[in-house]
């Protein structure tokens, strides 16, 4: 067998203008779904024709936390769990920017869970993309607040016995105005959902079920990331507007996907301005950014 080593091809991939090519190849494992979710975000940004100077990405820690480092945008890789409050500060200072939080389930739901529910409650105009691979991947496959019951992980070696969170229900009941769930296989629908989430004023939450091949699939003997993609193909059920109490995910169960919530509600800054007017009448100037709207 002959091994042919080619020079790196210089052709330009259409996503290159949105990626930090000096950092590619990325650190993610073969058959990991994260790269696909990044493509969905990049495609969404491109299709929205946003001025990319005005888009910022904030990530926490973990495999998904590395997304900020690969997007060619003003991008912030913060501490574990604190992407949302960091993004909140950024948004309040510069409400003219689109601030997107892109992080994983461990980061956003476990250590950052309190920030998620409170920022959703305040309806801060952020887009949160939560990649759920059911496990702490970066640290070697430990149990997560999303790990389905009976699934094995490095710290639930005999099978998980804790109830996992139902993320769409959590986000919606905390006050999110847009909630959707897709898998990494549903790239086009995911792109549409991200577009809608970015456009939506207020707190939007998109859960993306993505394969973790090296840990979740391996520890549970589920094959490769490709096998998980096939599983999503066979077991995803599109249920737009579903009763969120029914969209929890059991081990290797059907996965309800779709757009679950899309409602109108004044954002944090709208409410602040309303409160200011209520208290001070015409003396109050609507907030237009931390430096007087520049």
């Amino acid at each position: 067998m002959s091994v042919k080593v080619e020079e790196l091809v210089r052709e330009e991939h259409p996503m290159e203008k949105l990626l930090r090519m000096d950092r590619i190849p990325h650190i993610w494992c073969p058959t990991c779904g994260l790269g696909t979710t990044v493509t969905a975000l990049a495609a969404a940004l491109e299709q929205l024709e946003l001025d990319l100077d005005n888009v910022a990405v904030v990530s926490g820690i973990g495999c998904t936390g590395r997304v900020a480092g690969y997007m060619k945008l003003d991008s912030f890789h913060t501490t574990h769990g604190r992407a949302i409050p960091f993004a909140l500060g950024l948004h309040i200072a510069r409400p003219d920017l689109k601030v997107i939080v892109f992080s994983g389930d461990g980061d956003l739901i476990s250590i950052g869970g309190n920030h998620l529910i409170h920022t959703a409650r305040r309806n801060v105009d952020l887009t949160v993309i939560c990649v759920n691979n059911f496990i702490y991947a970066m640290t070697g496959g430990q149990v997560a607040p999303t790990t389905p019951i009976t699934a094995r992980s490095a710290t639930s070696p005999y099978g998980n016995y804790e109830h996992p969170f139902n993320l769409p229900l959590l986000a919606a009941s905390s006050g999110a105005v847009y909630v959707a769930r897709w898998t990494a296989l549903h790239v086009r629908r995911l792109t549409t959902a991200i577009k809608e989430a970015i456009t939506k004023p207020g707190f939007s939450f998109v859960e993306v079920i993505a394969p973790c091949s090296t840990l979740y699939a391996r520890l549970n003997k589920l094959g490769s990331g490709l096998d998980l993609m096939k599983f999503y193909h066979d077991n995803s059920v599109i249920r737009h507007g579903a009763d969120l109490k029914e969209v929890d995910i059991d081990y290797q169960s059907k996965i309800a996907v779709g757009k679950f919530i899309d409602i109108e509600k004044p954002t944090y800054i709208d409410c602040m301005n309303e409160g200011g007017k209520r208290a001070f009448g015409d003396k109050y100037k609507p907030y237009g950014g931390g430096n007087g709207g520049n």
């Binding site: 950024l90 309040i92 907030y287 007087g292």
Partner: peptide
């Protein structure tokens, strides 16, 4: 703050307070 164009926000905890002021500082404020 309200009449001076500033934003006070009572965060959910001190972890968030500190993170939020870093974010806003990078926002130029």
């Amino acid at each position: 703050f309200p009449l001076l164009g500033g934003v006070f926000i009572q965060m959910e905890d001190e972890l968030a307070s500190m993170a939020s002021i870093l974010g806003s500082s990078w926002g130029g404020v």
